[in-house]
Amino acid sequence: MKKEQTPQQPHEMYEGGSKVVYTVNADGKYELSSTTGWEPETIVLSQALEEIDRLSQQALLKVQQGISSPLEYHMYAQRMDLQMLAAAVGKFQWQVKRHFKPTRFVKLSQQQVENYASVLGIDTNQLVTIPND
């Protein structure tokens, strides 16, 4: 990539940030240039965020209908999935999945709730409730 071809297509997702890439200058030498963003990257990053949003909205609906526990919603909202959450709390996936049952979820010990909350990066009160809009 030539230095003058360095993409400068900022997007609000980057919050005005920039990063550096290696480019070739006019003398054919490699040097660092700053880039504020590139459209293909922006497209795929927003796609990934939309997918997370879709999954958490789906889970939220299930929680409101009483088929699932707030844990499932917060898992997606905090950008995790079942595999990652299970690995993070050191459980099997089927064990975590059991806690998606509302009846099972309310019986969780304080310690287990704290464990889930800490790997998700939220506090325990947040974990047992869902946002009401």
């Binding site: 990539m1 890439v21 990257e41 796609q47 997918e51």
Partner: peptide
């Protein structure tokens, strides 16, 4: 999602562009 994922692995933070190829060229 798969196609988007390929690009994310290749271009997002810390690849130097083009999946590290430009760093190696440097």
């Amino acid at each position: 999602l798969f196609m988007g994922h390929i690009v994310r692995m290749q271009e997002e933070i810390g690849t130097g562009g083009a999946g590290f190829r430009f760093i190696y060229a440097a």
